[in-house]
Design a binder for these strands. Structure first.
Lengths: 107, 107
DNA sequence: GTCGTAGTTCGACAGTCACCGTACTACGTC
DNA sequence: GACGTAGTACGGTGACTGTCGAACTACGAC
């Protein structure tokens, strides 16, 4: 099983479960915004340890959990590493322009 | 006597003082989101009393203050009435697409 | 097995925030 | 003047949230 169907131990909301308010709440924090920016900048997956944030590991876990529950990021487990990615397609489909507007902000 | 003859001392941030984080924080509340939606729907100014929100007057004042400080809405005083409007031009210029994305959200 | 690494879970704590009621100011009308 | 209306300011309270350290699980390498 080299595909995706075997290991979804991480709960993600489906596209229609994503709410604008949840997304806005998730983005309305400097640490989480930094995470989203890094994910958007690379356009690739980033492991937790590869994210540059000024908080401890446990706090980072907390923030990633919020982002995941809001439907902003997706997590993929591989060994002990968790790869995080931006759910750009879903977000763009639900709220076209939102992500672009946020990322267009002058830092 | 020397009364306040110039009456628009309502503090609004200039365009370059508006931050994406402040805007997101302001929008990340159901009451404030409802206010923004109503302002966007009519495209016109709405007095405080003309807004439909499930909170008391004092709480509404609080929310409008946050929206104003974040640069999301502008307030214009006329007699005892305060007219609120969406700063759509500024927001679109700073964060193109953001407002559209938020308003595109289902409900 | 033992160790190190990646990340989560679990309290706990401090700061923020939404909410309210009351009191207050400012304006218009009688 | 007195009165009603539009909205703000103040003080308080309960709930939420971001933060941390320490303990924990899971995997890989030795």
């Amino acid at each position: 099983m080299a595909k995706t169907d075997t290991l979804p131990p991480i709960a993600h909301p489906t596209r229609d479960e994503i709410t604008i308010e949840g997304v806005l709440r998730a983005l309305a924090d400097p640490v989480r915004l930094a995470i989203v920016r890094q994910l958007a900048a690379t356009g690739q997956e980033i492991a937790c340890g590869g994210l540059t944030v000024p908080v401890t590991k446990s706090t980072l876990t907390h923030h990633l959990s919020i982002l995941r529950h809001a439907g902003v990021v997706a997590g993929r487990q591989e060994g002990t590493t968790r790869f995080n990615s931006l759910r750009r397609k879903d977000l763009d489909a639900l709220f076209p322009g939102l992500l672009a507007g946020v990322l267009a902000a002058p830092r």
